[in-house]
Each structure stands twice: as structure tokens, then as C-alpha cells.
Design a protein around this nucleic acid. Structure first.
Lengths: 196, 196
DNA sequence: ACCTGAACACCGTTCAAGT
DNA sequence: ACCTGAACACCGTTCAAGT
């Protein structure tokens, strides 16, 4: 008679997969484990996602959106000063990346190409960085500067969460040092290009 | 009578695993595929490695050693000027990382903790960076500066190989821009700390 | 329209048996 | 001392059948 009503949803499934990912790594995100967590049998998941790669891709896309939102909020809250905005952005990126390390790592590695976040959602997430650096180095070098800043923030936090900083020292200090080095360098480059 | 002679070796197996990794991703590094490539049956691999994680870890350690060697050679070949040495180091890092993207990515993500490269091999690989930056910012800030530089190089190349630079623009240019921004910033910071 | 049990090909790993 | 075939528990995925 009445068709079977949905016992779970796309967002439930994504949430369950994200939780399993964060506390067990990619291997822990099995279709069996996800299904058990949302209360259905594994085959039912295929009514919501084409396959496991598509589910992992959806987790990555969600992480990109959340990361972009967190950065945008932080920039907004930092007031009008470009330097303060860039610092707030870098700090917010690290805070989010360290709080959800494996979902964030998913953004830059280990995803089936077909499941990568859409260019649109990536552009949305990249907006705040582009805006902030443009106000420092100007529009002509904004794209390169955004790439450099993102590379630093992503690289640093991915090394941090992978446990690559094993020689002691103050990791917080190193991050602050990096931000101030980049700021000093960007302001120099911005001045250079403004002068020429 | 005579005990069975070895039909393969640790380094053969690591090489086969690395090749499979580079052109098929981690999923392609199955014990079955590795065994077939070296000409034995899967169970035999367990005489050489405790389990799959240990094999993946050995691939990662090998990649760390190769990367460190490539960087050290490049620094050596660049002559005495600290700026030239740092530029050569950054370029060599990227060249190697882009040529062997998945093995390099392994260094910073997705490895079982027990299988991570030993601190000794990591220290060996990190030596050239530490030496070069020490000559620019001085010993007190060498560790932080090395972390910042490595974070940039690793972050940039990992984004590049993951296909994260999708808004056009000149990727080579962005990398050069990053190096010059970091150099300008580091020289400023070095001067600052020398002054104080 | 979504859910289920049964089934398939595959995987990592163990182990007793071969040489 | 290393190799092998057989076996185990597990995984992703498909599909016909249920409601």
C-alpha cells in the first residue's frame, strides 16, 4: 500500500559519516558502519548516494562550506583593518582545521576526482581569502597571494594534525610567526607593485 | 631439504607498492596487487612486513628520505648565497612533490601512527631546511621559520596535486610569488630580531 | 519510494603444510 | 627461512522482493 517512508536522510548520513571519519579515519567510514549509525541496512544508503565515493565527496563538500563560513564570520567580526582581518582569517582557519582535522584533510587529498567539491562551493569558500588579500596587495596579485596564504594555513595545519611537528618548540608561536612573516612580505610586495 | 630461497625482498616490495600508489592511489595498494607485481602470493608478504600498514609506512619513510636527499642536493648545488639556497630548496621540494605526488602526500596524512617515519629519518630530511633558514633568520627563530617554509611548500604542492587550484591563473607564478614574499618577510624578521 | 535479505566478487590476515 | 593453498571475517555493491 503506502510506499516505505524514509527512515534517514542525506544530511543524517553525511553527519554519521563525518563523525565516523573524525574518530576513526577513512577506513572507519564503511557503508556498514554508516548504515548502523543511522539505523538502516547498508543497501539503503544507495538510495541516497551513488556509492561510497559520492558519500565521502559529500562529507568533503560540507567541510568546505563549514570552513568557508567560519572564515567569513571571523573576517566580518574583525572590523575594517586589513591586517586584523587577515590575522583573524588565518586563526579561524587553523581553529576549524584543528577541530575537524580529518574532514579538513579530505579537502586537499584522497578524494575520488568525481566526488570533489563543486567549483561553485569552492569559489564560495575561497571568497573571504580573496577579498582580504586584495585589500593588501591589490587585485592584480590577489589570486597568487590568496594561494600563498591558503597554502601556508593548509600546509601548517595539515602538518600539525598529522603529528609532523615532533621536534618540540612552540607550535602556536610558529603559526603567529608565519602570519607576521607573510604579512610583512605581502605589504612589501603590495608597496612594490603600487610603486611600479 | 634446502629451505625456500627468497623470491622477493623488502625493497622490491616497497618499490612495487610505491608504483601502485602513484598510479592508482592508496586503494590500488592491495596486498594482492603488490604480491602479483613482485611475483609471489599475498601471504608471503607477511614474512617481510607485519601488515599492510607497515608496508605503507615503509613507502612513506622511503619517500621522506628521497625528498630530503633531493632537497639537500639542490641546496648544495646552489652555492653559498642564502637567498639562492632557499629558492633552490623550495623549487626542489616542489619538483619532487609534483613528480611523486601520492607518496609525498603520504608523509603528511593518512598513515597509521604506528607506521609513521621514525623521528630520526624525519630529522635527517628536515636538516637542509633548518640549515638554510638559520642562515637567514638566525638560530633562535630557525625552527619556526623552517616550519613556516615547509608548511608553505607542502601546502602549496599538496593543493596543486590535489587539483585545488581551479580558478585559472599562473600556478608557477604563484609559487615564485610565495617564495619571494616569504624571503622578504623572513629577512625583515631576521633584521628585527638582530636589532632587538 | 524507500527498505530489506541474500548473494557476488573482493580484501586483509592467519595457519598448517610444503620445500 | 620463505613460500603456498585453503580458510575466515569483512567489505562495497547489486538485485529481486517486500511495504
Amino acid at each position: 500500500m503506502s510506499p516505505a517512508r524514509a527512515r534517514t536522510s542525506r544530511s543524517d548520513i553525511i553527519g554519521a559519516a563525518r563523525d565516523l571519519l573524525e574518530d576513526g579515519g577513512l577506513d572507519a567510514v564503511s557503508m556498514a558502519a554508516v548504515a548502523k549509525r543511522v539505523g538502516v541496512r547498508p543497501p539503503s544508503l544507495y538510495k541516497h548516494f551513488a556509492d561510497r565515493d559520492a558519500l565521502i565527496g559529500a562529507v568533503a563538500t560540507q567541510a568546505a562550506v563549514d570552513l568557508g563560513d567560519a572564515c567569513a564570520d571571523a573576517v566580518e567580526a574583525a572590523g575594517p583593518d586589513p591586517t586584523a582581518r587577515l590575522q583573524a582569517l588565518a586563526v579561524a582557519y587553523r581553529t576549524r582545521a584543528v577541530a575537524h582535522p580529518r574532514a579538513t584533510a579530505l579537502l586537499f587529498a584522497g578524494i575520488a576526482p568525481a566526488a570533489m567539491p563543486t567549483p561553485e562551493s569552492q569559489a564560495e569558500a575561497a571568497r573571504p581569502v580573496l577579498d582580504v588579500v586584495a585589500s593588501i596587495v591589490g587585485p592584480a596579485q590577489a589570486l597568487s597571494a590568496a594561494r600563498v596564504l591558503t597554502a601556508f594555513a593548509h600546509g601548517f595545519t595539515s602538518m600539525e594534525t598529522a603529528g609532523a611537528f615532533r621536534f618540540g618548540g612552540d607550535v602556536d608561536e610558529a603559526y603567529r610567526f608565519g602570519i607576521s612573516v607573510l604579512l610583512a612580505g605581502l605589504e612589501g610586495e603590495g608597496a612594490t607593485s603600487a610603486r611600479s
